[in-house]
Design a protein around this nucleic acid. Structure first.
Lengths: 225, 225
DNA sequence: CGATGTCTTGATAGATCTCAATCTCAGTGG
DNA sequence: CCACTGAGATTGAGATCTATCAAGACATCG
């Protein structure tokens, strides 16, 4: 399937936005459009043929599995995000669709050629990599020193912000994009603990649950404790 | 103080290694050499004037502080490593010297100009950023699902590898570069738990402590459990 | 309506944190 | 030379938190 950048919803925010129309068209020619259903795997750790991709719509998760086979979510990728190893010989983590997704996939050789040809692209990807690094370190910082309630609260708040149109203020009412199981594996907790923390946050008047996924923010400041 | 790349120990491994002699000399002209003693701060979270640096010798830590003021180590930087925000308005984490250090410091504007001028530099930094991202995610994956003993064991093993000359085989005898307190804040544990884990690893015959910092690896395979 | 998967809630066990005491070691000064 | 001192490290006992196991509630879908 070919790519049609002209109607791409992330044409102004993805890494390729730094390219001119002609350059972008040329890069698009080297890439392929791809759709993934929820749960489908984009890259698998250890795959031979390394590739990379820009996410157009939907959400991805980057995961690894510990010794006992339990999944740990290392990162979430949102539209305009970029995934894939450009330098390591093979990917070391799985990348899986959290929701139905549309992506722009490139073979590594194509992307390397594009980096050589378009210096601005390297800078754009560098910026994204530093943002991702920042996100990973924030998740690390959140991880410990905090109670389970504080971790769940911070995650809910982060999702409220992601669900909002305005970047600063969190949405007052939204649906959690993750299942309890996924929330648990993002924080390194169990689903029971996540569920209990949500119950406590509700009893304390910080949030109100609307069905299984819906959340109404009553007192966002209490989520930060 | 001016930089003398010709005798720089990381001249072949740092990001600037991709530059030609003349290009490197020009970049060096824009940078300044700096020395830090153990415990001194290179960048502080929220600093106005963003800068970046390549580490020449010694070791740095990237840290943040949680609500109660406890430190959490987010990353270790080794020689040839690069630190600093190139795109965010200000650094969001502290960068502190773990040991006496020598560095090559650049104002952000200088580095941005260099990136514009030398496309290869963007690629080199992109590669480093992806490596750092990988390290941060590995630390995340290590964090949970493992017992404290397994975490401490993995950290000891990682340090044995870092202390070794050959990249693959861990050093059989080496000194821990981190205090117990620093090991604890890397793993999100307390120093008591780290100490107890080391005691158990010693009792199980995996390691033998030589003084407070010295470690002798008896059975590296047991550290991975 | 029953079936299935997800989520919630409860009781218990296990692990880590906290608080506190002791120990080691290097540096200091008498 | 030796005792003193202070920082870091080790060890112990109890409190606290989370994981585990188990059961029940809820929603979705056929």
């Amino acid at each position: 399937m070919s790519l049609s950048c002209s109607t791409c919803p992330v044409r102004d925010s993805a890494a390729c936005a730094v390219l001119s129309e002609e350059e972008r068209a040329e890069l698009a020619h080297a890439g392929t459009a791809r759709q993934l259903g929820r749960g489908e795997t984009l890259f698998r750790a250890g795959d031979r043929d390394a590739a990379c991709a820009t996410l157009i719509s939907g959400a991805l998760k980057v995961t690894s599995f510990d010794a006992e086979g339990k999944e740990r979510i290392l990162a979430l990728i949102h539209p305009a995000g970029f995934v894939g190893e450009l330098f390591a010989p093979f990917p070391s983590h799985d990348v899986v669709a959290l929701t139905d997704c549309r992506l722009c996939v490139f073979a590594r050789t194509s992307m390397e050629a594009a980096l050589d040809k378009h210096p601005a692209l390297s800078r754009a990807l560098l910026r994204r990599a530093q943002d991702d690094l920042h996100a990973a370190r924030d998740l690390l910082a959140l991880g410990s020193g905090c109670s389970a309630d504080a971790q769940v609260g911070a995650l809910v708040l982060a999702m409220a912000r992601a669900a909002s149109d305005s970047p600063c203020h969190p949405a007052a009412r939204f649906d959690l994009p993750l299942t309890r199981c996924e929330m648990a594996s993002m924080l390194g907790l169990t689903i029971e603990t996540v569920s209990r923390s949500l119950s406590r946050l509700e009893k304390d008047g910080a949030i109100q649950r609307k069905g299984t996924r819906g959340i109404e923010l009553l007192d966002p400041t209490r989520l930060e404790e």
